[in-house]
Design a protein around this nucleic acid. Structure first.
Lengths: 127, 127
DNA sequence: TTTGCAACGGCCAATAATTGCAATAACGTA
DNA sequence: TACGTTATTGCAATTATTGGCCGTTGCAAA
């Protein structure tokens, strides 16, 4: 564990919700002026791989948040207004189990971002 | 429908499976030397929006294939070896309906790419 | 026929994310 | 503490995708 990694981890941990990679970078540079953006990205991918943080795809940017062991959830992201809703994992446990049994495919439910249109944007279906 | 758009459509349609945006571009330039990459991307997004093509996220590249009305399916993509498996939509119809009823959220199941580890890569779980 | 308007494509710049590589820092071991 | 191995960093370049600007085109209204 290097100072850079600790810094990135602290920033994501200190965030109430999800935070963009670029925001992590600018916050990291406050204490640590020479952290490189590449390091931030690599660290975030590393933390994701070990399960500490969760990735959420919002628009065409990656966001991250702490993996909450006590309150796990999926993310519903509106492709129109980019609003993010959380969803109980109950909705997909069975799905994950079926895929594991039938295909041996272990879905990464943890980092699954589900795209679509939220109730508001679906009604005013412009595009 | 412009020649450029027809060209992009033809290329995707002439493909047995999915094809990367960059490949579409290089093939498009064979007949049409001055198509711009941005045009290819815009056209692909347009074709996706009208439901003609389906987007598949493979690694960190976008791939596209014709939307098959007679044999719709989701995509399972291994995050390790990037193998792509198809999955019957039956697995997720109920899920989509629940989200619509309970939250008014209309999932874009059409373009949903599900990430995870395939049977082979899950066993040799290196990273 | 002319005018006005919206759609589209080409060009280029911006943004987002990743990678290769050389220099460096961390860590275990003696 | 000194040393060697390995992982990590910074930097620069590269890839992937998107957006802005502007000229052109087709089509409809005047």
């Amino acid at each position: 564990m290097t100072p850079q990694r600790l810094s990135v981890l602290d920033i994501v941990a200190g965030q109430p919700g999800h935070i963009g990679a670029d925001e992590v970078w600018s916050l990291a540079r406050v204490q640590h002026p020479y952290v490189d953006l590449a390091t931030v990205y690599r660290t975030l991918q590393f933390l994701k791989r070990v399960g500490v943080v969760t990735e959420v795809v919002i628009g065409n940017k990656l966001h991250f948040e702490m993996t909450d062991q006590h309150n796990p959830h999926h993310h519903l992201v509106c492709s129109n207004c980019e609003a993010v809703y959380t969803l109980s994992p109950d909705y997909l446990v069975e799905f994950g189990q079926r895929l594991a049994q039938e295909f041996g495919f272990s879905v990464d439910l943890e980092n699954l971002t589900i795209g679509g249109k939220c109730s508001h944007c679906a009604v005013s279906a412009s595009e």
